[in-house]
Each structure stands twice: as structure tokens, then as C-alpha cells.
Design a protein around this nucleic acid. Structure first.
Lengths: 344, 344
DNA sequence: GCGTGGGTAGAAAGCGGTTTCACATCCTAT
DNA sequence: ATAGGATGTGAAACCGCTTTCTACCCACGC
């Protein structure tokens, strides 16, 4: 149970009214220094903490921000979440996390979960578009909640939802990668992983095509294989790729987990990365530098990323002006998983 | 903001009293089917959700369970958290996560954070003992909150704290490892990683010594090196080990991250794992099977682990009887990181 | 000397639910 | 026929805090 001592007890013992105590607690109105001191002593004595439910009820807000993300075990999300939490708490907000376990059905449940908690804001990571089963009820629900609660969508988009869109600049990230690979001499580049109905995937694929055509490099449709975001997806997509006649000399993976999966499968097939096949990942999770070879990856500034999300949503909650979309830079981090293609 | 429609609006429109609506909402008392139907229709129409703050205020509880853990980016914790959340939500509880970023100072802040939220229960993972700076204030705080709120400590212990202790059976886990290594022919075994003031480390080290002496194998003090729980710790501890004259033929790592770090450092030093050095990790995180060689590790049943924690704390919250400590089995999963020692 | 206004502090009205208590009805058992 | 027990419903108190409204005191100025 919570504390048993209430503001009334404090007031009685300090011989003032509850209003005065409350004023001291909130600083909402000036109080005589002497009175304040007297009350402070009592507050101190009982280590008093105002009951949050009561306070929220009165304030009409929860100072909680809901976070829905697809997979907390993916270091990209956990690292980002940790940063977000740090900044949120520094600003006296709390983060209520819902892990959707990569399931759309659960995502919808998460929405209900956060709505039930009356969060003041909603951060939605990895939003989907064009879902096979768009479930009108789910669409409705999102639209409804985002109309009521400031919402921010990270690397996603949702039709008919009023939200701030924070995205990583795929265009710049992919361009760096393609330029780098092309600079090494690669012309045959594949793109593996992701899901075609997830925004990031579409964006990265499109940016990839754009970057390739800018360099007058051909895009092989068959080298664009999507199968998810996990290590297993990486293994699977490489297996699929290997069944083709013609192979690329370099692969860009939708994220580092997929890249690690590709690495694993390549090893199984005795394909030497980077000698026979160059590989680049995304997100620069802390594992990227553990693999052999260490993974070249496109990195986020996690601290800035998390801070931006949190500051933006809080500003929205407080009714401040915010841009309707924010684009975050990514930075290629070169390690050991790429080489010039074998001349043959 | 939350919903604008209240129970009063519902009552007015359904032409009943608020009490009746409330009774229907909570099912706390029988209501005439006809009345219920009438009210249900209105409830449905507005998609009514009772205000949580008001409800909590009245109920005198939050149906939230606080979770403090040292590092959400460690797959062990994130995987376990995901399982816990799943079960908690299924039982109509919410999990409020605080990530302490491996900092004791933050841990204390987290305690205050969760106390502020008036959580009904507290799950404390990775508890510390014998901390260099035990900070009396911190000790006080923990004791105080655990006296008020059902607390459960996972793989830890805290002096003077009334809590259910859930731990993994290090004894059985380590015994399996030592038996296995010994069976392969290893007699010189080291134990790397962890922190000597963290309970798990102490338990695993002690169990290690016990298992060794059971097999009449000597324990080299200098092969017990602690430096934390991260990949970097793994690299560092192996570096330190390599400076010694005499080396072990097998290493047990405090967890898989440390093992991965050891793997990385070994590669740098051209030490072939498993040919020259066998390696075993703990936790069997999903990355264990990605490395080369795939990591032999002692695994948890995460589903059962998470469920047990959640069910136990809920039972405690509801005033039910619970054991004062629970021991969970671990299971050695053999992959490719161990071999018989080179005969030389 | 008295109206005026700034600085303090108390009383009381919410905030949106739950629950106790009281009161009808109606049904059953004596 | 009637006490007594369910059953169903409403009125009102209560959970703990914030905030408006009001009242008081005292210094100040005309």
C-alpha cells in the first residue's frame, strides 16, 4: 500500500490548513517563510510523498508517457528506451513501456493498455502502414487516441493520425553506405531484411534505389528480400539469396540483427565476409563491434535521438509549438565487414 | 487528456444512479439484468473507460508493479522483462520499469521514482550486497519501502529487507558446467566477470569452488577475475588473464555478454576458441547462438522465470501465502565453444 | 481616519470513481 | 398473515490533493 500519512495529518501537526500545505508542496502560491519552515519540518519528519492518484485526479493528468515498441530485446529499442527514460525522468515524466513482441495484435492491446492508464502522451515506435489486415477497429483506436493524446511516431506513419513524426534520415544514411560501397568498387548491391509493410523498410529500400540510380548502378529486384528484423530473418534471407544464379558483392541489411544473422549464415556456407561479400548493417547496436568481422553500420546518436523524442512530446503535452516532423541524421561507422569486391 | 465522459454522464443518460453504474463496472453487487443492459448500451456508446486516477484513489492501490533492473539493454533482462510484462498484463497488472543503467546512485533514484508512483509491488533485480558505499540513506529507503510494499528480489539479497527471494540455482548450473568441462578433460578452469559485491557473482563463484573441490580440482585464485557484466568486461578480464604465466584451459564467464567479450579478445590475440580455450557463458541470451563458435551456455526457462516472479508478487500483493524464497533450475545448453583441452 | 490593496491563510468545492448505509420490493418460511 | 431474508437501487460519504473564493491583517496614501 501507499503511505498512510496524508496532507491532513501534516496540516494538523503543523497547525495550518491543508491549503497551506498544498501550496508549499506545489509552490502554487506564496507562503510566509516562517510558516513554510514549520510545515517543511513536519513534511521532512514524515518523509511525506503526496498521493499520486489523488494528485493526478485533481490535476487531470498522469505525467506518464506511454511507449509502444515492437521488441525490447532488440538493442536498438532498449538503448533508445534507456535514453528516453533518462530524459523523461529528468523532466518529471514517467515512461510506461509496452512491448508488443512484434505482434500487431499485441500492439493494439498495448494501445488499450496505455489508454487505460490515461497517459498524457504516446510514443509509437515502428509504426506500420499497409498492414495486410489493417483491422479497422485498430485504425479507429489509434486515430481516436491520437486525437485525444499528443502522439509521436518514430520511424513510422499512420494514415489519419495526427502525430509528430520523428524519423531517421534514411536518405542520408543509405547514401553514405552506397557511396562507400561504390567507392570500394561495388556495383552489385543487395538489400536484405525488413518487412514491406513497415515504414522504415520502405524508406530504406526507396532511398537505396534512389542512391543506386544516382550513381547509375542497377538495382536487382531479386536482391531485395524482406523477411523481418531478427537474426533468424538475416539467416533466412541470405539462404534465399544464395539460391539465385547471380549474386551481389555487397549486402546492406535492414538492421544489425539481420546483419548478424547474415554473418552467421555466411559462415555456415563458408562465405568469407568481407572477402567474398561485403556487409553493412543499421543501428550500430553495441553488438556490432563484437562480431567477427566487426560490423560496419549506420549509427544513431542515441542520446540526441532519445532526448529529441522526449522533449518533443513534452512540449506537445504542454501545448507548445513543435514541428510536425523531425529528421535525424545517421552516420556511417566503418569497421571491418566491407572490402573491395574480388576481381574475377 | 483522458476521457471527458464520466460515470455521472453515463448514469444520467441511462437514467440510473452512479452507484448502479459503478456496480456494473466493478461487478461488486448484483444488478437487475434489464438495468444492466440499459447501462451497458450507454457504456458501449461512449466506449467508457473509468478514470484510473479516481479509481486508484478510491481503491487505495495502483495495480502497478515496479521493476528496477540494472541494464535493459542486456538481453537477459529485456527477455525476462518481456515475459514478466506478458504475464502481468494478463493478470491486469502493469509493470513500471526503471532502468538503473548499472548505477547504484540511479538505483536509489529509481526506488524513489517507483515509490512516488505508489506501486503495489516491487521487483528488484540484481540486488547488491556489501556495496563499497552502502549509503545508509539508500539502505533505509529500501528497508522502508519493502516494509510497506511487497517486494521480491531476483538473484540478490539485501540485509534487513523483507522480501521474497527468487534465485536461479547457481549450484546446479555451475555443477553442470564443471562436470561437463571436467568430463571433457579440463582440470584448469577459470571464472571471469561479475562484481564481487553482486550476489550472483558471489554465488556463482562459491558454487564454482564447491563444484571444483567436489571433483578434487584445484581452484586458482588468480583465475577468478571480476570486472563487471558487459562485453567490455569480458575483453578486459581476458586481457588480464593472458598476462599470467599459467593459463587455464577452460573459462566460465559470469554471463553471455562477458563470454562474447572474451571471444572477441581471444580472436584479437589469435587464441582459438574452442581449440585452445573452452568457454561457457550464462543466461543463454539469443545472441549466444550467433557468435562463432556458437556459445555453450547455461540457460534459463525465461517463460517460467518471468511467470514465477509475477505470480509470486501478485500473490503477495493479494495477501496470499508465498514461499520466502524460490529456486529456479538452470540447464546447460551445449553448443560449440568447448572441446577437450589440447594435450601438450 | 478610513478606504485600498498586497500578502497570507482557511473553508469548501471539485476531480471521478467506490462503497457503506438506508430503503423499497418482493419472496419465502413459519 | 407476517416476520425476515434476498434483491435492487439511490443518496451520500469518502479517497487525498488542488484551487478558487473569501477573509483577515496590516501598511499605506489621501
Amino acid at each position: 500500500m501507499g503511505d498512510k500519512v496524508t496532507i491532513y495529518d501534516i496540516a494538523r501537526e503543523a497547525e495550518v490548513s491543508v491549503s497551506t500545505v498544498s501550496r508549499i508542496l506545489t509552490g502554487s502560491a506564496p507562503v510566509n517563510p516562517e510558516t513554510k519552515q514549520k510545515v517543511d519540518a513536519v513534511l521532512q519528519k514524515y518523509n511525506f510523498r503526496p498521493n499520486r492518484a489523488a494528485r493526478n485526479l485533481s490535476y487531470q493528468r498522469s505525467t506518464m508517457i506511454g511507449v509502444i515498441l515492437p521488441d525490447i530485446t532488440n538493442p536498438f529499442f532498449s538503448t533508445l528506451f534507456a535514453e528516453m527514460q533518462r530524459h523523461a525522468i529528468a523532466k518529471d515524466y514517467s515512461l510506461l513501456l509496452f512491448n508488443a513482441m512484434n505482434s500487431l495484435a499485441l500492439e493494439s492491446e498495448g494501445l488499450a493498455y496505455l489508454a487505460r492508464h490515461q497517459v498524457d502522451g504516446l510514443i509509437f515506435m515502428g509504426g506500420r502502414v499497409n498492414e495486410v489486415e489493417p483491422s479497422p477497429a485498430y485504425q479507429m483506436e489509434i486515430a481516436e487516441i491520437s486525437a485525444r493524446v499528443p502522439t509521436i511516431i518514430v520511424n513510422g506513419e499512420m494514415p489519419g493520425v495526427d502525430a509528430v513524426i520523428v524519423s531517421t534520415s534514411e536518405q542520408s544514411g543509405i547514401a553514405q553506405v552506397v557511396d562507400y560501397l561504390s567507392g570500394l568498387g561495388h556495383t552489385r548491391i543487395g538489400f536484405l531484411g525488413g518487412s514491406s509493410h513497415i515504414t522504415v523498410t520502405r524508406n530504406r529500400q526507396q532511398s537505396f534505389c534512389a542512391a543506386m540510380s544516382r550513381l547509375a548502378l542497377p538495382v536487382e529486384e531479386q536482391w531485395l528480400i524482406t523477411d523481418g528484423f531478427s537474426i533468424e530473418s538475416g539467416e533466412k534471407t541470405l539462404e534465399m539469396l544464395l539460391r539465385l544464379e547471380k549474386l551481389p558483392t555487397a549486402i546492406i541489411a535492414i538492421n544489425d540483427l539481420v546483419a548478424l544473422g547474415i554473418l552467421k549464415a555466411a559462415r555456415r556456407h563458408h562465405i568469407d565476409i568481407p572477402r567474398q561479400l561485403s556487409l553493412v548493417g543499421f543501428d550500430d547496436i553495441y553488438l556490432a563491434s563484437v562480431s567477427t568481422p566487426e560490423l560496419t553500420s549506420v549509427s544513431h546518436n542515441y542520446e540526441y535521438f532519445g532526448r529529441t523524442i522526449v522533449e518533443t512530446i513534452i512540449s506537445r503535452i504542454k501545448g507548445g509549438d513543435t514541428p510536425s516532423s523531425i529528421l535525424l541524421d545517421m552516420q556511417l561507422v566503418i569497421r571491418d565487414s566491407c572490402q573491395p569486391p574480388e576481381s574475377r
